[in-house]
Design a protein around this nucleic acid. Structure first.
Lengths: 133, 133
DNA sequence: CGGTATCCCTTCTGATACTG
DNA sequence: CAGTATCAGAAGGGATACCG
């Protein structure tokens, strides 16, 4: 195996000890509400606060603000303030955020082929699969 | 665009309206503690409860049980109970769970090239980037 | 419009103790 | 060993109201 510093990314799947190397990414990218936000910004382009609020069904302004701030801090989205009356704020995905697109594509692909397997497993488990022992 | 039923997975990136199609996967795969568990099982193979408990630093038996049950219900892991004294239970990743390996690989790859960008963005934001407006 | 402030409540989690 | 039971505490959201 290669050294820690020069190890190719794929080798991470075989990296022993300690926590799994994808946990940090999960914290950044896959927190609640972040994927719909990134998805919306990536799909529909630059949007205002209300547009996002309306698009992302069920989110409250407080939570939307929190997540947008976090995503802005992490460099995933860019916030632009226009000092007008009424004020106008636009959010757009950054280059760093856009680099997640292929990843999201892979996840979507996994979903289309495997989500039904999960559903099936759940039904099977709920019918008779409760753990014995 | 193709119809809803036959649409290729990658087109999901352009799917309009409603929530983003990867949210269900996020709920299943990227809940707290699930990635370290799947990672450990995928990397080190079949393991007993205590082995997982010791390997995954900081997890409590209660939470480990909860997550393992959920993963078992979703068909990601297989639980095998050996009625011996003392009892022995082994967990291993399922075929469905193993199908996530390439995905995890992509995430790990993204991490190695982009995680430092995130760190940099955070420092920059914390230094002077607080939103004005 | 684009938020913030406040309150409340559910969920998640940790610690501890105990059992077959 | 492989959990379960119980309780307490923290965190994350939601609802509502208000502000520049």
């Amino acid at each position: 195996m290669a050294s820690e510093a020069s190890r190719p990314a794929v080798d991470a799947m075989a990296n022993p000890e300690l926590a799994c190397p994808i946990s940090p990414v999960v914290d950044i990218v896959f927190s609640r509400w972040t994927t719909p936000i990134l998805w919306s910004l990536n799909t529909f382009g630059r949007q205002r606060f209300v547009e996002l609020e309306r698009r992302i069904k069920g989110i409250t302004p407080k939570v939307l603000t929190q997540r947008l701030r976090q995503l802005e801090r992490d460099g995933m989205v860019v916030r632009t303030y226009h000092p007008e009356v009424p004020p106008r704020v636009e959010y757009e995905i950054s280059e760093l955020g856009r680099s997640l697109a292929p990843l999201f594509g892979h996840i979507a692909e996994w979903a289309t082929t495997n989500l039904e397997h999960v559903e099936r497993a759940r039904r099977h488990y709920d019918d008779a699969g409760a753990p014995r022992g």
